[in-house]
Simulated assay, not measured.
Amino acid sequence: HHFAHPGNRFWPVLHRSGFTPRQLKPSEQDELPGYGLGITNMVARATARADELTPEELREGGRLLSARVEASGPSWLAVVGVTAYRTAFGDRHARIGPQERTIGGARVWALPNPSG
């Protein structure tokens, strides 16, 4: 499950930000579509740390994620990890927050990584 480590801040922050009516457990991630939310990986390889992903993997992940967003048509895309975002989308100067770019019509936010 995504962000399943007990100390990870993703699920508490998702709830406290008002996206879910209660704090979900990682095992309940399948409930997200019911709230109009989705979750996916940019790179489909589990790692202990984000810096274990190569720039090539991140760029390919950005390409695949862009295609998925274009096909599914969400209004918003939030990318967790500003460093990964910078690499995946070739935006060296991106900062946390809303981005100038859109992807498939979706507004884009870069967020800090909640994984400690």
Score class of each variant (00 low, 15 high):
1 H>E: 13
2 H>M: 15
3 F>I: 03
4 A>E: 12
5 H>M: 10
6 P>Y: 06
7 G>S: 15
7 G>T: 11
8 N>A: 00
9 R>K: 11
9 R>Y: 03
10 F>K: 00
10 F>P: 03
10 F>H: 01
13 V>G: 09
13 V>C: 08
14 L>A: 06
16 R>D: 01
17 S>K: 07
18 G>N: 10
18 G>Q: 12
20 T>P: 09
21 P>E: 11
22 R>G: 04
22 R>S: 07
24 L>F: 01
26 P>L: 02
27 S>D: 11
28 E>M: 00
30 D>W: 06
30 D>S: 14
31 E>S: 06
32 L>C: 06
33 P>A: 03
33 P>M: 02
35 Y>I: 07
36 G>R: 05
36 G>C: 09
36 G>Q: 08
37 L>I: 00
38 G>K: 02
39 I>T: 02
41 N>S: 12
41 N>R: 05
41 N>Y: 02
42 M>Q: 04
42 M>L: 15
42 M>E: 05
43 V>N: 01
44 A>S: 11
44 A>R: 08
45 R>D: 12
45 R>G: 09
46 A>L: 13
47 T>M: 13
49 R>H: 12
49 R>E: 15
49 R>C: 09
50 A>W: 04
51 D>W: 10
51 D>L: 09
52 E>F: 03
52 E>R: 00
54 T>S: 15
55 P>A: 09
56 E>G: 11
57 E>N: 04
57 E>M: 04
57 E>W: 07
57 E>T: 05
58 L>F: 04
58 L>R: 01
59 R>E: 09
60 E>N: 06
62 G>N: 02
62 G>T: 07
64 L>N: 10
65 L>I: 08
66 S>G: 15
66 S>L: 05
67 A>W: 10
67 A>N: 12
68 R>V: 12
68 R>W: 11
69 V>R: 01
69 V>H: 01
71 A>L: 09
72 S>T: 15
72 S>V: 13
73 G>Q: 09
73 G>A: 09
74 P>C: 08
75 S>P: 10
77 L>P: 06
77 L>Y: 04
79 V>I: 14
79 V>W: 04
79 V>D: 01
80 V>Y: 06
80 V>M: 02
83 T>W: 09
85 Y>G: 05
85 Y>S: 08
86 R>I: 08
87 T>F: 11
87 T>R: 00
88 A>G: 03
88 A>C: 04
89 F>S: 03
90 G>D: 09
91 D>R: 15
93 H>F: 12
94 A>G: 10
95 R>D: 13
95 R>H: 13
95 R>Q: 14
96 I>P: 09
96 I>T: 15
96 I>D: 11
96 I>A: 15
97 G>V: 05
97 G>C: 13
100 E>N: 14
100 E>V: 14
102 T>H: 14
105 G>Q: 10
105 G>R: 08
106 A>V: 07
107 R>K: 13
109 W>K: 11
109 W>I: 10
111 L>K: 03
112 P>E: 06
112 P>S: 02
114 P>D: 02
114 P>S: 05
115 S>K: 00
116 G>I: 05
